[in-house]
């Protein structure tokens, strides 16, 4: 039980993939123009992460060490293809807005990173928990980013108007805003962690 708590804490705070480890940056900056996009991207990546973590921890003993990376990539790519087919069938609009970032979940370093660093060394259940908590950590980071950017850039949250009469700064939705928000968030995270020590 203690280990599960530890894993969850690691995924969401201590080793948060985006804010602490600074990996998986491309989708974090690209799709966080609105909370809705950020949320769906987080859910899609979490699904792939959990699926690949579980499968890899099951088959880890059959994989020769030399070809493990291609095997991991194949497993991950299969899950991504599932997501791709599902999204294009049921959420065609989302497919358009997320665009090439759905197939690009394959090269999200978080997923391959967890496969290599965790799932290949731990049991099925632990890997499942690790996948879920890392996924939640990723989704939360995406949503914080997206919330800030959508509010400041469009005065909206989940496509709903927040403060009538507030003039949004459209630059926050543009790439500039993405870099700026991310820089501020990482600086805050660094500051908090340094204060603690």
């Amino acid at each position: 039980m203690a280990k599960i708590k530890e894993l969850i804490k690691d995924g969401i705070w201590n080793k948060n993939p985006v804010l602490v480890q600074a990996i998986g940056l491309c989708p974090t900056l690209a799709v966080t123009t609105s909370l809705k996009n950020g949320f769906y991207m987080g859910v899609a990546s979490t699904f792939v992460l959990v699926g690949s973590n579980v499968i890899i921890s099951i088959i880890k003993s059959f994989i020769p060490a030399k070809v493990r990376i291609p095997v991991y990539i194949t497993v991950i790519a299969s899950f991504v293809t599932l997501v791709q087919l599902f999204v294009s069938a049921y959420l065609p609009e989302l497919n358009k807005t997320l665009g090439i970032f759905i197939p690009l979940i394959v090269v999200n370093c978080i997923i391959l990173g967890r496969a290599e660093a965790f799932a290949s060394k731990n049991g099925v259940f632990d890997s499942l928990i690790d996948g879920v908590s890392m996924g939640i950590g990723f989704t939360l980071a995406l949503m914080i980013m997206a919330g800030i950017r959508e509010f400041l850039g469009a005065n909206k949250l989940f496509d709903l108007l927040v403060i009538p009469g507030f003039e949004p700064a459209a630059a926050m939705i543009l790439p500039v805003g993405g870099f700026l928000t991310m820089g501020v968030l990482i600086a805050i995270m660094n500051y908090i962690n340094m204060k603690k020590r």
Binding site: G177, L180, M182, G183, V184, I186, N190
Partner: peptide, 8 residues
Amino acid sequence: PLAFFVGA
């Protein structure tokens, strides 16, 4: 953080 601001 600095790198991100330069990127911005």
